[in-house]
Design a protein around this nucleic acid. Structure first.
Length: 287
DNA sequence: AAGAGGCCCTGATAGC
DNA sequence: TGCTATCAGGGCCTCT
């Protein structure tokens, strides 16, 4: 599921629901994720109070009151579910991948608060959890990551300079977290469409004006996606609660063979595999 | 050093 | 109904 906008929505929802609460019980049902859940995870966080939930890139950062905490990456299929016991198992959906009905399989972690239970579910186990002891350790974790699109460091000059002599195509760079943090396959496609740049264009061949468009539209697209509550694809007929709606305004993603939505353009959306990821683009107006 | 490709995993869906 | 193949929103690791 999760690119920056979806993770941001989960973060906001967690801040509303569990900020200030004390962790009463921790149950790890299955430690096997991309990396093993650390053995001391339970002991590290038990009885501590949630100070706040932050986000960097596609990572959820749970900060406890002593500045220790843990990081959750949702991978491709990770979801977080909150159950409010006071409302008799009424489930708040903090996910976009599943229906709000609580999944039975692949519940890896349960964290219990006084009246609320948090469940981390991840069928494909591409997500993971790691712990940190203090701010310094946390910062170290993200040291090698590129700036987020919203950061002032991410500007046309940065992009243009970065791309000098780079032979890789622009699509791969948008997915490269060392270049820019938080963009995934859906939004890379959408950003390139509105920027009118074809995904296969070599980075070094981008003009300064191209770079300005990348800079500008990355912010626009991600901001809009956050406003829409993220994108919910696959199995969203049964969902309620925090359902995203950006998928309703996809211009290219999953629109293979459909008409280009740029007014006046007679193009058709094509699908092409680039580095094992699906790319969607208009065959006429993206050059 | 940069870039290409394999791989980690389960589940949904399409086609036979 | 049941097989097989293909494809998923990510990113780490290895090889050239």
């Amino acid at each position: 599921m999760p690119e920056l906008p979806e993770v941001e929505i989960v973060k906001q929802s967690l801040n509303k629901k569990i900020k200030g609460k004390i962790i009463q019980k921790v149950l790890v049902k299955n430690r096997n994720l991309r990396f093993k859940v650390p053995n001391n995870f339970e002991n590290k966080i038990i009885k501590k109070k949630i100070y706040k939930i932050d986000r960097f890139s596609k990572y959820i950062i749970v900060i406890l009151e002593d500045n220790s905490g843990f990081i959750i990456h949702l991978g491709m299929s990770g979801t977080i579910h909150l159950i409010d016991k006071a409302k008799k198992n009424n489930i708040t959906n903090s996910s976009f991948y599943n229906s709000p009905l609580l999944p039975r399989k692949h519940n890896h972690i349960e964290i219990k608060f006084n009246k609320t239970k948090l469940i981390y579910n991840d069928p494909r186990r591409f997500g993971y959890l790691s712990i940190f002891d203090n701010k310094k350790e946390l910062n170290k974790k993200f040291y090698s990551y590129g700036p987020e699109p919203f950061s002032s460091l991410f500007n046309a000059k940065y992009i243009y300079n970065y791309f000098k002599n780079k032979k890789k195509n622009i699509k791969n760079f948008l997915l490269d977290q060392k270049f820019v943090s938080g963009i995934g396959n859906i939004y890379a496609n959408e950003i390139l469409f509105v920027s009118k740049i074809i995904p296969t264009k070599k980075a070094k061949n981008l003009s300064l004006n191209d770079c300005k468009k990348i800079f500008y539209f990355s912010k626009i697209i991600l901001k809009k996606a956050i406003e829409k509550g993220g994108s919910s694809i696959r199995d969203f007929k049964n969902t309620t609660g925090n359902q995203g709606s950006f998928q309703k305004i996809f211009k290219v993603y999953q629109r293979e063979n459909l008409k280009c939505l740029k007014s006046g353009c007679k193009g058709v959306i094509k699908k092409k595999n680039i580095s094992n990821r699906s790319s969607f683009f208009c065959n006429i107006c993206q050059i």
